[in-house]
Simulated scan of single mutants.
Amino acid sequence: MIAKLSGLVDTVGTDFCIIDVGGVGYLVQGSSRTLGALPGQGEAARLHIETIVREDAITLYGFATVAERDMYRLLTSVQGVGAKVGLAILSALSPTEVENSIAAQDAKSITRANGVGPKLAQRIVNELKDKVAGIVAASPKGVAVNGAAAPAASQAGIIGDAVSALVNLGYRPTDAHGAVVKAAKELGEEATLGKLVPAALRELSA
């Protein structure tokens, strides 16, 4: 099983690249985001690889970052999201944008990807919301409630309340969620709801 490739860039196409590793060229499928980040022909590159083995083929999918690879795995765990759709989503949105869209229940943002209609986008949001919520709740360490460190569930509640407040002010759910999570990380233990909303507003206006 191939997990990583380090070699020289031989060819870059619209949805694939060839990486020369010791004289052997590996054909790797990738998102436009990953392929666009590759260096020029003949230069050194490294890709994190997801290997899919089927009876008639062994296919390599490459990712510039571990975060992108992990989000790909998460997306393709949803029924109806195959390899091509997973790459299309990661071509249209960064892993962080996908995470924020799911956490904010913003299915419309995911329809920006080619081949993803409203029904599939909603299924992605519905099936992955709990998995993404666990990641988000754990990321802003020590969010405080009444001055005391809160458990993950309360952290998620504060984040949700702050996002709702920003959405009521007219901000898109995905943008609001991203700003709130970033503000919560910076505030740490001081991230009460009263401080979180103004801090997130500053992030949005930056």
Rank of each mutant, 00 (worst) to 15 (best):
A3I: 09
A3V: 15
A3R: 11
K4W: 12
L5Y: 06
L8N: 12
V9K: 01
V12H: 05
G13W: 06
T14N: 11
D15C: 03
F16G: 04
I18L: 14
I18Q: 10
V21A: 10
G23H: 13
V24C: 02
G25N: 11
V28H: 05
S31C: 06
S32E: 13
S32L: 15
S32W: 08
S32I: 11
S32P: 02
R33Q: 11
L35A: 11
G36E: 12
A37S: 10
A37I: 00
P39H: 06
A44Q: 12
A45E: 04
L47A: 07
I49R: 09
T51S: 07
I52D: 12
A57R: 13
I58Y: 00
L60F: 13
L60C: 07
F63H: 10
F63I: 09
F63N: 05
T65C: 06
R69T: 01
R69P: 01
D70Q: 14
D70N: 13
M71F: 08
L74G: 02
T76A: 01
S77R: 00
S77T: 02
V78R: 03
Q79N: 15
K84W: 01
K84P: 02
V85F: 05
G86P: 09
L90A: 05
S91H: 03
S94P: 12
T96V: 14
T96A: 14
S101K: 10
A103Y: 02
A103P: 00
A103H: 04
D106Q: 07
A107V: 04
A107S: 07
S109T: 15
S109A: 14
R112I: 13
N114I: 10
P118G: 15
P118Y: 04
R123K: 14
I124L: 04
V125P: 00
N126S: 12
N126T: 12
K129I: 11
K131E: 11
A133N: 04
A133S: 10
V136I: 15
A137S: 13
A138H: 13
S139Q: 14
K141H: 10
G142N: 13
G142I: 08
V143T: 08
N146C: 00
A150E: 08
P151L: 07
P151F: 05
A152Y: 09
A152Q: 11
S154T: 14
G160D: 00
V163D: 03
S164V: 06
N168I: 03
G170Y: 07
G170C: 02
R172N: 14
T174N: 06
D175I: 00
D175W: 00
A176H: 07
G178T: 08
A179R: 01
V180F: 01
A183Y: 03
A184G: 12
K185H: 09
E189P: 15
A191Y: 00
L193E: 04
L193V: 08
G194C: 01
K195D: 00
V197S: 00
A199P: 02
A199Q: 03
L201V: 06
E203M: 09
L204R: 00
S205Q: 14
A206R: 15
